[in-house]
Computed example of a mutant assay.
Amino acid sequence: MILSRRTRIALRAAMVAGLAVVYLPLLLVLLNSLNRDRSFAWPPAGLTTQWWVRAWQSEGARSAVLTSLQAGAGATLVALVLGTMTAFAVQRHRFFGRQTVSFLVILPIALPGIVTGIALNAAFRTVLGPAGIGFGLLTVVIGHATFCIVVVFNNVVARLRRTFPSAEEASADLGAHTFQTFRYVTFPAVRSALLAGGLLAFALSFDEIVVTTFTAGPGVQTLPVWIYANLARPNQAPVVNVVAAVLVLLSVVPVYLAQRLSADSPGGRL
């Protein structure tokens, strides 16, 4: 499609404006984490790294980071197993209700977080409560896995649609058993999709706050929850900006890697 010069300029201006709306506030968070003034006056009176030192020394912040890493790792592991198995079932087999299963797997990512949180809270109280299992890290992992499964499922299904099963059939014809075929043929074909899905699932879990609020126990505080709890405390404001900046930087890495892996060739880069 051939566009006029004026149209191209307008599209580029709209793109720049859209990116500015998204990323300028993030840049301000990074700048405020180095602002010498505790009130974050603009322009900054000077730059300092003292808030980064205080954030590193904050036991609450370190504990919250560790909890977020544990919850993210657990949710990602569950999502990889269940999302991959569901993707293979839906894409490689024909059975009654296949489209319904696919819809039900994708649905949690579209539901409002507060609805999912309330539903999980009620379910955990009804099912786990009588069994003596209270709210804690386990319930957070289960809650995060409900929407992390979606990104793994979508990545693996997309890869399977681009990978023909003829190679697996040829492997079986040559005498390879099921596990050999999976190891040497199927897994290399979907490996980068699994990595991309896992990275996105971890990023989603690491940043989640709404579902976490409804599924975490009193002693469980992830990094986003810690930020929200300390946001209104004047003495903690500089440290909160530092932690928020770290959260932004940590979120960029898995999303960038996932984007690179998702853009590879059908055979995979790795």
Results as ranks from 00 to 15, higher is better:
136 G>C: 11
182 F>H: 07
181 T>R: 10
17 A>M: 07
210 V>D: 06
209 I>H: 06
54 R>A: 15
188 P>C: 00
27 L>C: 15
76 T>S: 14
109 I>D: 02
74 G>P: 01
242 V>N: 03
112 P>Q: 13
209 I>R: 01
170 A>H: 02
75 A>L: 04
11 L>G: 06
8 R>V: 10
70 Q>L: 15
138 L>E: 09
114 I>K: 09
246 V>R: 05
154 N>A: 13
1 M>N: 13
27 L>R: 12
219 G>P: 13
104 L>H: 13
247 L>F: 08
149 I>H: 06
58 S>V: 09
74 G>F: 09
48 T>F: 11
78 V>Y: 01
263 A>R: 14
270 L>H: 12
174 L>M: 12
89 A>R: 03
48 T>V: 08
19 L>E: 08
196 A>W: 00
6 R>K: 11
169 E>R: 01
113 G>L: 05
68 S>Q: 09
223 L>K: 11
71 A>H: 04
252 V>K: 09
108 P>N: 13
114 I>M: 08
184 Y>E: 09
239 V>C: 08
131 A>I: 06
36 R>T: 07
104 L>F: 15
192 S>P: 03
252 V>D: 03
32 N>W: 14
161 R>N: 13
255 V>T: 15
257 L>P: 00
242 V>A: 03
220 V>D: 03
182 F>V: 08
72 G>I: 02
264 D>R: 04
143 G>L: 04
97 G>Y: 05
167 A>P: 00
207 D>F: 03
88 F>S: 00
174 L>C: 09
63 S>E: 14
78 V>D: 02
47 L>P: 05
240 V>S: 11
228 Y>I: 06
163 T>P: 01
154 N>K: 11
16 V>I: 15
